[in-house]
């Protein structure tokens, strides 16, 4: 694997789509709609100084990984590359865990389609990707993690089928084609 299992797609997703949509809506309905509380913005798209705060960083990590798993399911269904990746083996279930923020999600390739969810998965995981420390997961979200080194040092634990993790990574990386990072 050459890139983080879960890259910065979340930030890109939010930066590229969700927040602009919010802002457009606010522009149209400025008179009648209140702006979200500043705290929400800090949570969704934090500035680097905000991430020094553990509370903000933990929430950001949980939201980010949740968004990434959901996005992967959508891409596998509708994106040509994601769909093509789904057509190749291996099938199986991948579980993603960040215990420090209580994140526990899963994705499952089966018969060319991808499904996902949170909490206890419906079957034993073929591969488990675990970030023992949420700060490592944060680096992965921000595309600042040397994944191969992190696996070697134990900062990131991948147990089970590495090819399945790699296959999911290809789908996740595809997100950045839809939501290119803001310059």
């Amino acid at each position: 694997m050459k890139k983080p299992i879960l890259p910065t797609v979340y930030l890109r997703l939010l930066a590229g789509a969700v927040l602009p949509a919010f802002r457009e809506a606010f522009a149209l309905r400025r008179a009648s709609v209140k702006r979200p509380r500043p705290g929400l913005f800090r949570m969704l798209m934090p500035r680097a100084p905000d991430l020094k705060c553990d509370t903000t960083a933990r929430a950001h990590v949980g939201l980010g990984f949740g968004t990434a798993l959901r996005g992967a399911v959508i891409l596998a269904a509708h994106d040509p590359v994601g769909h093509a990746v789904g057509a190749h083996p291996p099938d199986g279930l991948a579980r993603f865990q960040i215990p420090e923020v209580g994140f526990d999600g899963w994705l499952r390739f089966a018969g060319g389609s991808l499904e996902g969810g949170h909490g206890e998965p419906p079957a034993p995981a073929d591969v488990t990707v675990c970030f023992p420390h949420f700060r490592t997961a944060l680096l992965a979200l921000r595309d600042e993690l040397d994944t191969m080194a992190a696996i070697g040092t134990g900062e990131m634990l991948v147990t089970g089928s590495l090819p399945l993790a790699e296959r999911l990574n290809v789908v996740l990386e595809r997100m950045s084609d839809y939501f290119p990072p803001k310059k």
């Binding site: 694997m1 040397d146 994944t147 191969m148 080194a149 696996i151 070697g152 040092t153 991948v158 590495l162």
Partner: peptide
């Protein structure tokens, strides 16, 4: 070193 050890001898594999 990127990856610590890269290529086919990477511990990740």
């Amino acid at each position: 070193t990127p990856g610590g050890i890269y290529g086919h001898t990477s511990p990740a594999l």
